Amino acid sequence: MPNPPERLTSAALGRLVGYSPQQVRDLERLGVLPPAARDPNGYRRWTKEHVVVLRAYRALAAAIGPVPARRLLPVLRTSPLAEAAGQVDELHASLARERARVVEALRGLAVVVGEPDLPAVEGDAMTIGELAQALDVRPSALRHWERAGLLAPRRAAAARRYDPPAVAAARVVAALRSGGYPVPTIARVLDELARHRTTRDAQDLLDARLSDLARRSLALLEAAAALHAFLSARAEPGRRPGEGSAEPRPPA
């Protein structure tokens, strides 16, 4: 990839990454790009450092979405370097947690349709706190899903208790809600599970969620080069973007 010139207009910077001049200016306004220097006539003048940041943003947006990328890039740009590197690590960890959540939901489908009419066994039930911890959600989320008709825990002395079928249903809800599926879609899937003992719709949605997570993982791996260049430029402010680190000096 050819090196960009030392000074760039908004249009030239945008062309390097496939953005319009207005998109470049908007990203500066949102704090994604550091402020550009201004010529006496008011025109912005961008540098190679801005190219590195913008390429990192574009790669990150492809992996996690434009809105999360717009929130995260200013943090990566301004926080201590160790914290910024940790934030990138957390992106990979978050995808792994989401994938594990979907896999557990798929495993739980058999519980939902297996033998839901067996008598409840107290030792097999979970409290709302235990289930929230297992799903990595807030207890308020479980109460919200209950009010929406997605979950139906039994009550014991005014406390909610979640038997294995309710736990399995909650795993399905958590996996689909984290993927952005709306409540009516999830309600339809759970109704199919309850009424017809079929898992086809749930499996289709969860499989689609797994495919999306795989796509995002690959996009994040593809973004690694741009993020490495971005964080390396932060680690070595004097190094020109795109250049490798200096060769280690031999011992005296």
Results as ranks from 00 to 15, higher is better:
residue 133 Q to R: 10
residue 38 R to H: 04
residue 108 G to D: 01
residue 66 P to R: 07
residue 76 L to F: 00
residue 208 A to S: 14
residue 214 A to S: 14
residue 217 S to P: 08
residue 54 L to V: 00
residue 197 R to H: 10
residue 155 R to A: 10
residue 59 A to M: 07
residue 7 R to V: 09
residue 25 R to M: 08
residue 166 A to L: 05
residue 143 R to D: 07
residue 86 G to D: 15
residue 102 V to N: 03
residue 192 E to Q: 15
residue 107 R to P: 02
residue 8 L to W: 04
residue 61 A to W: 04
residue 181 Y to M: 14
residue 195 R to T: 15
residue 84 A to W: 02
residue 242 G to T: 07
residue 137 V to A: 03
residue 234 R to Q: 08
residue 252 A to D: 10
residue 210 L to C: 09
residue 188 R to H: 15
residue 5 P to R: 10
residue 99 R to A: 11
residue 224 A to F: 10
residue 179 G to C: 08
residue 148 A to W: 01
residue 225 A to L: 13
residue 204 D to A: 14
residue 181 Y to Q: 12
residue 81 L to Q: 06
residue 235 A to G: 09
residue 176 L to E: 04
residue 188 R to F: 10
residue 169 A to F: 02
residue 78 T to M: 12
residue 131 L to K: 07
residue 112 V to P: 00
residue 112 V to W: 01
residue 118 L to K: 11
residue 152 A to F: 00
residue 80 P to A: 13
residue 10 S to Y: 00
residue 114 G to A: 07
residue 193 L to G: 02
residue 238 G to R: 08
residue 91 L to F: 13
residue 20 S to K: 04
residue 123 G to W: 02
residue 29 R to K: 14
residue 161 R to F: 05
residue 81 L to M: 08
residue 85 A to Q: 15
residue 13 L to K: 01
residue 208 A to E: 14
residue 66 P to M: 01
residue 182 P to C: 08
residue 74 P to V: 05
residue 251 P to H: 14
residue 4 P to G: 08
residue 61 A to C: 06
residue 100 A to E: 15
residue 207 D to W: 08
residue 12 A to T: 06
residue 106 L to E: 14
residue 58 R to K: 11
residue 120 A to Q: 03
residue 89 D to L: 13
residue 201 D to H: 09
residue 83 E to P: 01
residue 248 P to C: 02
residue 27 L to H: 06
residue 33 L to S: 07
residue 42 G to V: 02
residue 163 D to L: 15
residue 141 A to I: 02
residue 142 L to V: 12
residue 55 R to G: 10
residue 86 G to P: 03
residue 229 A to H: 13
residue 26 D to W: 09
residue 85 A to C: 13
residue 20 S to I: 00
residue 200 R to T: 04
residue 199 T to H: 03
residue 131 L to M: 05
residue 110 A to E: 13
residue 47 T to Q: 12
residue 102 V to S: 00
residue 25 R to E: 00
residue 220 L to I: 04
residue 215 R to M: 07
residue 49 E to I: 00
residue 251 P to I: 11
residue 194 A to T: 09
residue 89 D to C: 11
residue 71 R to Q: 15
residue 178 S to G: 15
residue 235 A to W: 11
residue 189 V to M: 07
residue 26 D to V: 12
residue 86 G to F: 12
residue 68 P to Q: 10
residue 91 L to S: 05
residue 107 R to Q: 14
residue 40 P to D: 10
residue 217 S to M: 07
residue 212 D to Q: 12
residue 22 Q to K: 11
residue 34 P to Q: 09
residue 64 I to G: 00
residue 238 G to E: 14
residue 129 G to A: 09
residue 246 A to K: 09
residue 218 L to M: 11
residue 55 R to P: 00
residue 124 D to I: 00
residue 103 V to Q: 14
residue 216 R to W: 11
residue 209 R to A: 13
residue 32 V to A: 03
residue 117 D to A: 11
residue 140 S to G: 03
residue 132 A to T: 01
residue 61 A to M: 02
residue 163 D to S: 15
residue 1 M to I: 03
residue 245 S to L: 15
residue 110 A to H: 06
residue 18 G to P: 02
residue 230 F to N: 02
residue 240 R to Y: 03
residue 69 A to W: 02
residue 57 Y to Q: 02
residue 16 L to E: 02
residue 20 S to Q: 03
residue 16 L to T: 00
residue 110 A to Y: 01
